[in-house]
């Protein structure tokens, strides 16, 4: 028996919105410690790694490990049927063909159940090597989303250059070029508005806008985003999900031909 309950479906709704652009199908691996998803997009350029810890749920029970293949499009449609304040419960038997989503309104007067067929998927798990990153930048997630959106108008790629002074995003295309520099905040009263740079060595890397603009769909999950970069390795773009877990996106850089 697997059962996981969240007091408010808003978190799960946001998680689905944050992955649906990149993934069509994904395996949800459920164990005593929580729910994990690790899946690449079809082009094998980016990877989504989602971790929801069991202690972050209001109720969590997982008698035996389960790997449930889910269609992300269908799951997104089902989550859109829930109000943000509804309680959501995921339920499955031990060798499931289906998963049930149960939405209960706050006043308990409305109870909705949606059953979704599971799909068989080949499990291809990637081992992500431990990496010491040359630059780790924490910045407001809305600012990052804004910069990705704005610079996407100029080119199909954004170059991120990080040094002790700050972080610079730039894009160039047929119509011109653009760059946005953010300095490290000296002393921000509000943690959420801070730009913090932890730099060992300066880095300069180029990434496709299309993927960055998919990652920033996670913006509603967290006020801050963490970007970890080293030369010639994938970018890690991380959003904390409240007290329950995190979503990490990995993106292969664009390299010189």
């Amino acid at each position: 028996m697997f059962e996981a309950r969240l007091a408010q479906s808003a978190i799960l709704k946001k998680v689905l919105e944050a992955v649906k652009d990149l993934l069509t199908e994904a395996t949800f691996e459920c164990s005593d410690s929580g729910i994990q998803v690790q899946a690449m997009d079809n082009a094998h350029v980016s990877l989504v790694s989602l971790n929801l810890r069991s202690d972050g749920f209001d109720k969590y029970r997982c008698d035996r490990n389960l790997s449930m293949g889910m269609n992300i499009g269908t799951m997104t449609k089902i989550l859109r049927c829930a109000s943000s304040e509804d309680t959501v419960t995921l339920r499955a038997v031990d060798s499931p063909d289906n998963i049930i989503f149960i939405f209960e309104s706050q006043n308990k007067e409305k109870l909705a159940e949606y059953e979704m067929k599971l799909i068989n998927m080949d499990l291809e798990h990637l081992g992500i090597p431990e990496t010491m990153y040359s630059c780790v930048v924490k910045m407001p997630s809305q600012e990052f989303a804004r910069i990705c959106r704005d610079l996407s108008q100029f080119g199909e790629a954004i170059t991120i250059a990080c040094s002790k002074e700050g972080i610079k995003f730039s894009a160039a295309g047929d119509y011109g070029n653009a760059n946005v520099k953010l300095a490290q905040t000296a002393d921000s009263d509000k943690e959420e508005e801070a730009v913090l740079i932890d730099m060992q060595e300066p880095v300069k890397l180029t990434f496709a806008c299309r993927y960055l603009n998919s990652f920033v769909k996670a913006t509603p999950l967290c006020a801050q985003v963490k970007l970890s970069m080293s030369s010639d390795v994938p970018l890690v773009c991380e959003y904390q999900i409240g007290e329950i877990g995190h979503i990490r996106y990995y993106l292969a850089p664009k390299i010189d031909d």
């Binding site: 690449m40 082009a43 094998h44 350029v45 980016s46 990877l47 291809e124 798990h125 990637l126 081992g127 992500i128 090597p129 790629a157 180029t206 496709a208 390795v233 994938p234 990995y250 993106l251 292969a252 850089p253 664009k254 390299i255 010189d256 031909d257």
Partner: peptide
Amino acid sequence: LTIQDNLTKYFIVV
């Protein structure tokens, strides 16, 4: 000219 690199080059399939 830049080309898009692939993730599987960096990560090991386990």
